[in-house]
Amino acid sequence: MPSLNWLRVFEAAARAESFARAAEQLNMSAAAVSQQVRSLEEKLGAPLFERHAHSVRLTEAGRAYLPPVQQALMTLEEATEGIFGQSREQGLYLQCVLIFAHGILARGLKDFEAQHPGVSVMLSTGNSARDLQSGFSDLKIIFGNPHAYGAESDRIMGEWLFPVALPEIAAQISQPGDLLQWPLIEVGTHRSGWRQVLEEARVRPGAGRMVFADSTIMAMSMAREGRGIALARAPASDGEMRGAGLQPCLEGFHVRGSQAYHLIYEDLRGLRKPARQFRDWLLDWVATQGWD
């Protein structure tokens, strides 16, 4: 087995993507961090990082090795705290798709923390499957197919789609066909999008001119700059829509999306206490908000 200290240094450097920042966190010199990582690589017989001038990046082997190292270190830490009582706080490691974290979770975390003052939430966000499949987490909140991420899941909520734009653009849209006068900003990673919305509105989808964004948050920013009409994905995008000064283009028109947000984990019975607490709170809290 490699030295435990080597593993701690490797994990810190992987998270920081920098030997210098890892050194600050560990109260070591950057040279010492580099040397301990090198010793671990020699022990394993494989490089774990690609070295660059001001940063480091995990190799394929490093990315594969990081999750079990994080899991092992966290298990050891939890066991130490549980037996010897060194800390009253328990860490919850949560990965979440960005728009849900931004538009939904940010509203409720204060409530969760008030109910569970001994739990510290370590939240990281991403947009792609790759973002949410790297690193260790107790729980993941994803959008789309839950089977691609974990063994077990709970459906959290779905979404409603409707077109939004700057007030001066929205004022010129009195019927669905008017939407085609402007570029339609599409998020290409979603199954539900402009094609579904236009078909529901009985407008020929092929007649629209599409421009693409990689996220709903980016689509809203583009609409804010007058580059076209975006699709709101309520309720997760409500705050972003208001912040961008956008408004619905066709009052009362909305389409049910075909995908949903899910809470992902490997084994319900194996969840640590803070993860079980968060799961129970999240499902209850979303239900009280009336979101489905």
Results as ranks from 00 to 15, higher is better:
1 M>K: 10
2 P>K: 04
2 P>A: 07
3 S>N: 09
6 W>E: 10
17 E>P: 03
24 E>K: 14
28 M>Y: 02
30 A>Y: 03
30 A>G: 10
30 A>P: 13
31 A>F: 06
33 V>R: 05
37 V>C: 12
39 S>H: 10
41 E>L: 03
45 G>W: 00
49 F>N: 02
50 E>K: 09
51 R>V: 12
53 A>L: 15
64 A>F: 04
64 A>S: 12
66 L>K: 06
66 L>E: 02
78 E>V: 07
78 E>R: 15
97 V>R: 07
97 V>H: 05
98 L>F: 11
110 K>F: 03
111 D>W: 08
117 P>N: 04
119 V>H: 00
120 S>L: 15
121 V>P: 08
123 L>S: 09
126 G>M: 11
127 N>P: 01
127 N>K: 12
131 D>L: 03
134 S>D: 08
137 S>M: 03
140 K>H: 06
140 K>W: 02
141 I>W: 00
146 P>T: 08
146 P>Q: 03
154 D>T: 07
162 F>P: 13
164 V>F: 00
167 P>Y: 01
178 D>K: 12
181 Q>Y: 02
182 W>D: 02
186 E>N: 13
192 S>G: 12
196 Q>S: 09
200 E>K: 15
201 A>I: 08
201 A>L: 15
207 A>P: 12
208 G>Y: 00
209 R>T: 15
209 R>S: 12
212 F>V: 13
212 F>H: 09
212 F>W: 04
212 F>Y: 11
212 F>L: 09
216 T>A: 12
221 S>K: 08
222 M>P: 08
223 A>N: 04
227 R>T: 05
228 G>L: 01
230 A>R: 11
232 A>G: 05
243 G>I: 07
244 A>T: 05
253 F>I: 11
253 F>P: 14
257 G>E: 04
260 A>G: 06
260 A>P: 05
263 L>G: 05
267 D>W: 01
268 L>R: 13
269 R>T: 13
271 L>G: 02
275 A>H: 09
277 Q>D: 06
282 L>I: 05
282 L>C: 06
289 Q>T: 12
